[in-house]
Design a binder for these strands. Structure first.
Lengths: 131, 131
DNA sequence: TTTGCATATTCCTTTAAAGGTATATACCCG
DNA sequence: CGGGTATATACCTTTAAAGGAATATGCAAA
């Protein structure tokens, strides 16, 4: 991954929004969809693009694919992600996304105890009361 | 200029090389051409693109158009240009460009006392001995 | 095994950018 | 004015990316 490829990954609004959200923590596709308000195909394809360029890491959790920012980053990638997050904090659009994420997180955890719960995931949750 | 547009400007190798070179100081198109080893059209069009997005400033000096990094920069632009220059210093390709520029600069100043000479430009150089 | 859900992929159309050739513009000088 | 130089623009072709509709895959639970 050279500099140009990094910038190619960053030059789409949906991808920027995804990266900005992932800076808050890992997220599965369905939650990304809801926060972004974008159709599944669109989100999935941008995630595929980012994956192909190692800009995100993925983990499967049952039916869900949980995305996060990559642990290992080249110096250029680290520098540019840091720069992006700095800029995103000042930008109303990205701030709105992050706020929407925080507002939705409570609801997410009620709905599904598996998907996107905080790091130590309960492997086989006992509760299935709902429905 | 929002973040996405900044990254769109940065996602082409020729444009990155131009910006990296301009970090060393202002340059006219012909010198950029020579350092980059790229055809005039290509350089000119990328400069037009950067100009249209306010990523460079221009000044006319007789026949020559002298380009430089913009004096006024939004916080995002400033941050990303700084990040770019940091990364470029580590990258062999950009380092090679800068070295080529430094090597050619002496020759440039012999050839034309006007074009791209350091800031206080001699308005009407007396010498026309050559040819 | 069948069903259902979450996600990915394929196929298609549209749009934008890149690169090249040729031409135009702007300036200088004689 | 005319010619020369530096740079920009127009026009064309090719390539890549985006977005959507439909379909496929992978997993889990009944």
């Amino acid at each position: 991954m050279n500099l140009v490829q990094i910038y190619q990954c960053l030059c789409d609004p949906t991808r920027l929004r995804i990266l900005s959200l992932l800076d808050e923590g890992e997220l599965c596709v369905c939650h990304l969809q809801k926060v972004l308000g974008e159709p599944q195909v669109k989100v999935s394809k941008h995630l595929a693009y980012l994956r192909a360029h190692k800009m995100v890491a993925v983990r499967r959790e049952a039916n869900w694919m949980v995305y996060s920012l990559p642990g290992k980053r080249s110096p250029e990638l680290a520098a540019n992600l840091a720069c992006l997050q700095d800029c995103a904090e000042e930008d109303p659009l990205f701030r709105a996304d992050r706020e929407r994420l925080r507002n939705l997180k409570g609801r997410f955890e009620e709905e599904s105890p598996i998907c996107c719960s905080p790091s130590p995931l309960p492997r086989k949750p006992a509760r299935h009361a709902k429905r």
